[in-house]
């Protein structure tokens, strides 16, 4: 199945699972989905026999609210069972709004929930690879809103000082922070902090793959421009969807929007956001 169709399927799955679990950060999951799909499809060995090798690439989800997007990708890759997804947010489930690594040994590398933790841990993991002379990279996905946390920049200083060229930070930049404060240019900030900066359309799998394959002698940050709720007109336009789940009578419309997204909306979004 083409990426485009798989991603539509996964978006609809996110909607259904949120309905079953009666909770969801769907806008955030939709914002991150192409990034997460690209990393799992092309850069991680999860689900393959060689996965538990020491020198593997590892992924840290720092913006924990996109956890359901990771879970549907893991299910698509056959790492977790579909029926587990249907227990989303249930009392005895392994899967909820945020990840608990103790329930996914070797598959989910870090727990998440409180922002500003994942990236510093990813820096520690990249440092550990250097200590052990291990191959592989650490890919970390953070949100642009998360870049307001001081620990992100504390970790950035250290990563730069150590020249951790095995570290790739992807910022899902859906303007979460710039709608609140004038954060200025993240690009300029990361350059000043000693990172190599790439900018990319965060909903373009091929473009993401290309930029994530790059190697440098410094830590690399990919500023992935995205739109909250990408994939559904309603989710993009209605801010109340940041933290809510669809009701029975909404799901059909939302799924139809996912199916018809390019036709209805994408051209306009591209014009506005991805000049």
């Amino acid at each position: 199945m083409e990426n485009k169709n798989v991603l539509k399927k996964l978006r609809k799955k996110i909607l259904y699972i949120s309905l079953i679990g009666k909770d969801g950060n769907i806008q955030s999951c939709f914002s991150s989905l192409e990034i997460i799909w690209t990393i799992y499809s092309f850069f991680l060995s999860v689900g393959r026999t060689e996965h538990f090798s020491e020198g593997r690439n590892r992924f840290v989800l720092s913006k924990g609210q996109s956890n359901l997007a990771v879970m549907v990708v893991l299910a698509e890759k056959g790492v977790i069972e579909e029926r587990e997804l249907e227990k989303f947010c249930k009392f005895d489930s392994r899967i909820s709004m945020q990840a608990d690594r103790t329930k996914f040994s070797g598959i989910v590398e870090t727990s998440a929930g409180s922002l500003g933790h994942g990236f510093p841990m990813a820096v520690g993991m990249a440092w550990a690879k250097k200590i052990k002379s291990e191959k592989g990279k650490i890919f970390c996905l953070a949100g642009d809103g998360e870049m307001n946390e001081g620990t992100m920049w504390e970790a950035a200083i250290f990563a730069s000082s150590e020249k951790l060229n095995n570290l790739v930070l992807i910022v899902d930049d859906n303007s979460s922070i710039s709608r609140l404060i004038d954060i200025g240019s993240l690009k300029d900030k990361f350059i000043a902090f000693g990172f190599i900066v790439s900018e990319v359309n965060g909903h373009d799998v091929e473009a993401l793959k290309e930029v994530l394959e790059l190697n440098f002698d410094k830590p690399h940050v990919v500023l992935a421009k995205t739109i909250r709720g990408w994939g559904s007109k309603t989710l993009i336009e209605d801010r109340s969807w940041f933290h809510r789940y669809p009701k029975e009578d909404e799901i059909e419309l939302l799924c139809r929007e996912v199916d018809d997204f390019e036709k209805d909306y994408a051209r306009m979004c591209k014009k506005i956001y991805f000049k």
């Binding site: 590398e109 510093p120 820096v123 520690g124 550990a128 200590i131 052990k132 620990t151 504390e154 200083i157």
Partner: peptide, 28 residues
Amino acid sequence: PSRAKNIGIFEAGMVSLAAGLSISGIVP
């Protein structure tokens, strides 16, 4: 020098960093 460092005062980030080491099998 690769694993014994005076990395300055950023205790919150430092403890997360230490967790990243621990996840990777390096006891901080």
